[in-house]
Amino acid sequence: MTELTILIRNCLKGRRKYQEELYSRYSGLVMGVCMRYARDQSQAEDIFQEAFIKVYQNLSELQEPNALPGWVKKIAVNTALNYIRPRVDRTDPINDQTDADDQEYHRLIDHLTNEQLVSIINEMPEGYRFVFNMSVIDGYNHREISDHLGIAESTSRSQLTAAKKLLRQRLKKLGINRYESVN
């Protein structure tokens, strides 16, 4: 019997010690997801609470104990989607001035903390943010995104393209600011 099996089983039996252990293990992961999708800290906390309650309440639905981390994360994402119900507007044309090469972006990213990266993503419009998170970070395909957000697949694609361009702009700007501040 695996460690996760024991954990799940005892949580289902209502043993508080194991419920706390489950929380301790995955609260950071769930909060990370919430921070990426939410508009701000307050909204993230609301989603976090709702998501974790769903985790406990639906734990009996988990068929494979080893899938627990991914399952928890999936619940967090779904909760965020249901909570925020993002409004995906028409994609505005973004002036592509991202002439920096890929290596430069890599260096920029290496210099940024995860919190800074999340902050950059949070600054994007809601539609961009959700499509970018779902597609790039959480691995949804465009069909799934269109199903979840109630948009056409083509809209999902265009939103993603626009989100990527916007991200590069922000990264570049942040990088310039950073170098300027260092200098």
């Binding site: 909060m31 990370g32 976090f48 990213i109 990266l117």
Partner: peptide
């Protein structure tokens, strides 16, 4: 970016764990 953020963890709100478990 995916490698950096897919397992990104943020500190949970303090004191919320007990309240959630109580509620459940």
């Amino acid at each position: 970016l995916k490698g950096r953020l897919q397992d990104y963890e943020a500190p949970p709100p303090p004191g919320m764990g007990g309240a959630i478990i109580d509620q459940v």
